[in-house]
Computed example of a mutant assay.
Amino acid sequence: MGNHNHHHHEHSGASLIDAARDSLVSSGEQWTSMRADIFEELARHERPASAYDIADNLSAKRGKRVAPNSVYRILDLFVANNLALRVESANAFLANSHPGCEHDCIFLVCDECGEATHIDNDEISEKVRGVAKAADFRARRPIIEIRGTCASCS
């Protein structure tokens, strides 16, 4: 079987925004100006961003207050449609660099700088799903987070 790690075409900048829009529209959702602004703001961040960070930045950009609650709702929609990934332990979000691609999330989260590296490993995913299945549990979307220190901070 060999190596199960995937390397997708990683989108960034305008191509990431286009890929996200196309993916959301093809799933039957609208790409509104607010959704576009929130996705652009999310994609600008190298590290996971909270709904509050995004709301603050958008409020400044739009010149009127954007409520964190409406940002949360849109981020949840993005997560449900695989446009964004949620780092549970940090309650923060990252743009998915391959929108619409469904993989179980494995995050390496640095406790020093907050960087979250997303890796795909089907072998680990299959084992985790197997453990859940053996316990008669249907896993919807396993998320594994490994906290520690990244190479830059070590």
Rank of each mutant, 00 (worst) to 15 (best):
Q30H: 10
A92G: 07
A90G: 12
C105Y: 15
D104P: 11
D104L: 13
T117H: 03
Y52C: 09
L42H: 11
L83M: 03
N121A: 06
D53H: 09
Y72I: 11
G114H: 05
H98A: 08
T32W: 09
N81C: 12
Y72E: 05
Y72F: 11
V109G: 12
E29A: 04
P68H: 09
H45R: 07
V71Q: 15
A95M: 01
L83Q: 12
L24P: 15
N96S: 15
A95Q: 06
E41H: 02
D111T: 14
A90Q: 04
T32M: 05
A116T: 14
Y52L: 06
R62P: 00
P99E: 01
L85Y: 04
N121E: 13
I54N: 01
A92W: 00
S50M: 00
D111L: 01
S27K: 08
N69D: 03
N121C: 03
D104M: 08
S70R: 07
D122Y: 07
L83P: 08
Y72K: 03
I106E: 03
D122T: 04
D122W: 06
R62M: 08
M34E: 10
D56H: 10
E88L: 08
E40G: 03
G63H: 09
A116D: 15
V109D: 14
L75T: 05
R62S: 02
D37S: 07
I119A: 14
A36P: 04
H45M: 10
